[in-house]
Design a protein around this nucleic acid. Structure first.
Lengths: 228, 228
DNA sequence: CATCACAAAATTGTCGACACATTCGATAAA
DNA sequence: TTTATCGAATGTGTCGACAATTTTGTGATG
């Protein structure tokens, strides 16, 4: 029962939107399933008003699809949509990396190098390898995104795309990506940023994301083959 | 009174969202102004329920900002936000152009050449020059975007970005861009697409958008100087 | 004259109820 | 058995009203 966690936001609608988003990304509400307003309202102990506003918001984030007089359904993950999402991410995050290369100051860059060193330590000691594959990987990307200083890019990437990307990762129960290879690519990207080589930094980031997309694609196609 | 136009959609909320969006983009609701729920509800003859859902949707589109217990305001256009928006557009539409170069069939390409020929004719006869500067220009871009075949890209560009871009154009009362220069650039982009040169097509589209951004920036800074 | 406190008004957030559309199930017909 | 039709049940869309918060306006005080 994840609905016991009350994050206490300013408005009920925001709370519910956040909780619904988590529930969908974590797979607690299975993909493709219908969103029943009376049921959820009773479950969360609220009325349908703020719940509907939350659903409208989730539709804007692309997590659910709505049809008039019928209702909302959680999106159905599939390979084509995943490829589309990663192409979009490649374009946006490539641009973010280019801007970061132009904007980042020395101390920010050093701080990022320190983060990568920490990742290296995790790999060498292979203590908690799960940290790297999940939060740690995203840390690097998120900090570059924010370093771009472009509010539109930040919003689209962190609010619109990353929720869905996390869904895909969780859905494929985290693929057999090579963390050491990823770390090497991160280092190369950061080196380009440190040298303020925007063109190169963008190119490397795009390749990095493109590779991750290919790996995910293979994992997904293996899954659909296994289940058919 | 634009609220007499009833577009008769399936649901009231969608209708209102569409009408509000038009009113904001057209400047009928001035930027930075407050969105009063009771006032708008009375004006459109509906209750606050669907109106609020429409406002939530507009917030997702980035046309209004909301603060809890205070209300919604139309976004305030400024140069920095415009530059951010165009950088984002450059990234997304560059990727769309690359994908279009890989996907477009001969008949689609010929149809686009025909469109450019029509634009050329408009310029030579300089009949209705306003067509080109407004709808005509977008036609070319929109058809390339759709030719990308990437649903995510299409949604982000046509739903999230183009509304704001139109706002900026209208706000600066359409700048002194050179339509002939733009047409030449469109031809070069289409040539690259026809040759299936994805790299080149993306590069040219990005330059094309970057130039438009610079022109808009100049126009906006001139306006802020004039009004200070 | 400026500033603060407090009450009144207006606005947002939330709720329950009703109208309408869709879906489901039973019955009848082919 | 299958399909079609119709009525009941469920669910979505919309409304009006109440609760809670913010804003406004008034007067007192320095």
């Amino acid at each position: 029962m994840s609905n016991l966690i009350s994050i206490k936001s300013a408005t009920l609608s925001e709370d519910i939107a956040q909780q619904l988003m988590n529930a969908i990304v974590q797979g607690e509400i299975p993909q493709g399933s219908k969103i029943s307003e009376p049921e959820l309202a009773k479950q969360y102990g609220i009325s349908r008003g703020p719940l509907r506003e939350a659903i409208v918001k989730l539709e804007g984030l692309g997590l659910v699809t709505r049809t008039a007089n019928v209702g909302a359904r959680v999106i159905q993950l599939n390979t084509q949509d995943m490829l589309d999402t990663f192409s979009t991410r490649e374009a946006l995050e490539g641009m973010a990396t280019r801007l970061a290369a132009a904007n980042m100051k020395a101390d920010e860059i050093n701080s990022l190098y320190a983060l990568l060193d920490k990742h290296q330590a995790y790999l060498d000691d292979n203590q908690d390898e799960r940290y790297l594959q999940q939060g740690g990987n995203d840390d690097f990307h998120l900090r570059i995104i924010h370093a771009s200083g472009n509010a539109k890019l930040i919003r689209l990437l962190t609010e619109e795309l990353y929720a869905i990307i996390r869904m895909y990762r969780r859905h494929t129960s985290d693929q057999r990506s090579d963390p050491r290879q990823a770390l090497r690519e991160h280092r190369a990207i950061l080196d380009a940023i440190a040298n303020h080589e925007g063109d190169l930094a963008e190119l490397l980031m795009r390749r990095h994301i493109s590779r991750a997309s290919s790996l995910l694609q293979q994992a997904m196609e293996k899954m659909t083959l296994a289940s058919s």
